[in-house]
Design a protein around this nucleic acid. Structure first.
Lengths: 239, 239
DNA sequence: CGAGGTCTTGAAGACGATCAACAAACGTGG
DNA sequence: CCACGTTTGTTGATCGTCTTCAAGACCTCG
């Protein structure tokens, strides 16, 4: 199996053989996790970062009253907490949503990449910067988009991200997320989330059936959700 | 005047004389801007980044119907669009809210820093990663906090950020933002924003008078807004 | 001093939360 | 393979939050 991070980076720039090798060698350990297992705890001081090889994970924060806000979904190729390399301490938790395979990359190995491989460093930096761009898009959605627009926007985003690592095609993808988890990401109640999904169905834009999302009308959904893929920065560029 | 970026970075790690010098020399030009002037346009291909030396700026996105979502406020020492160094293309606009003094840092100079100064590179990377942490906290607020909690949280954040560059003390700071702009950042109507401010006043937590914010009860506001400064990563650490 | 921008308040209506009940799907043990 | 319990999804009803529209007060700066 090819390292999905390499696949993701090569979508945006050329990697040399040496860079690919360094990335692969930076992995100290591969682990398997069960669904709902914690990967990193909020507030934890940390000396390694975690790369998702397969499965879905989330970043989240628990509020005083027990409510949860999910701030990001992560899939194969995503470095869930690469930011902890410079931050040193987590400001949120990370958990597996589904059974996952993850790679542990010690911060020391990342530090050596920054010392010796400037171009690769810029690409890793790019990954965290794209994460931030996705965060901004979520802020925009939460501030300005309708409920069903928010769900639709997320579906568009996930479809393109999954497609970039070969996990989606034909406007369909596996979505192993309960409505409760989706609600925690959108900042809605589960009831309202359910109604937003119903609205997307009624508008013939997207359908969720089991763990399968089908985008029935991509153009229409893009229009309704005001989705502009620019923020995912999927273009090939020298960085 | 000392470069406020250096002040901000030195709050988090040691800079060598050489690193300070390199940062100062990376500035190609200093410009003065009037209030409401655009700094960078959404979608623009860009070859330099902008550092705020004084004044307030915002990142924002305009929706199809003309509504605006502000995704970040920036003050002295903030690199408004350092992320464009790796992204190459803007996915939002940046504008001056007040008259500003800004420094232009060509991407070529940043590239050379990544080639020759790994530690300084990590600190610049850190800046973008803290931006992302702030974005996440905004997502959490928009998803879970009450209206006045959201405003209060923003006040706590801005107070600490301003304090870190010597622009606030005694739980007061200058806040040159209209309620309309504040509303665009919170994702509220101006009317509701006004009522959230009134509630903070009624709870004796914070008061806005003219362009001055006074936090009347820091402990109380921190509790009410569930503010935990950890996400600002203001600690001193070797990075 | 007057005019435009900003702030404040009231009232009506839309949107989203909560509570409650039931249906459907899933998984586990018999 | 079926039965049963548990989790997840769906819908209705009621209530609170936030938006919109509208009007008046307060600045501030030419």
């Amino acid at each position: 199996m090819t390292n999905p991070l390499i696949q993701k980076l090569e979508r945006r720039d050329v990697l040399s053989d040496e860079e690919r090798k360094v990335l692969d060698q930076s992995i100290a350990q591969v682990k398997e996790l069960g669904a709902d297992e914690d990967i990193v705890a909020d507030g934890q001081r940390i000396t390694f970062s975690t790369l998702v090889l397969s499965g879905w994970t989330v970043r989240y924060k628990i509020m005083g009253d027990g409510r949860r806000q999910i701030t990001a979904f992560h899939i194969a190729g995503d470095f869930v907490d690469l930011h902890s390399f410079t931050l040193k301490r987590m400001d949120h938790g990370v958990a597996a949503l589904t059974p996952c395979k993850i790679a542990i990359v010690p911060h020391e190995n990342l530090r050596q990449i920054t010392e010796r491989f400037p171009h690769l460093t810029r690409l890793l930096w790019l990954s965290t910067v794209i994460d931030a761009a996705v965060h901004r898009e979520w802020i925009i959605g939460m501030g300005q988009r309708s409920a069903h627009g928010r769900v639709g926007h997320l579906f568009c985003e996930l479809y393109l991200r999954l497609q970039a690592v070969g996990l989606a095609a034909d406007h369909r993808f596996t979505f192993p997320i309960t409505q409760e988890e989706l609600a925690d990401a959108l900042g809605f109640s589960t009831v309202h989330t359910n109604r937003a999904l119903r609205k997307l169905r009624q508008l013939d834009l997207a359908t969720v059936k089991g763990q399968q999302v089908t985008i029935d009308n991509w153009e229409g959904l893009v229009r309704e959700a005001e989705f502009d893929p620019a923020y995912l920065h999927l273009e090939y560029e020298p960085r």
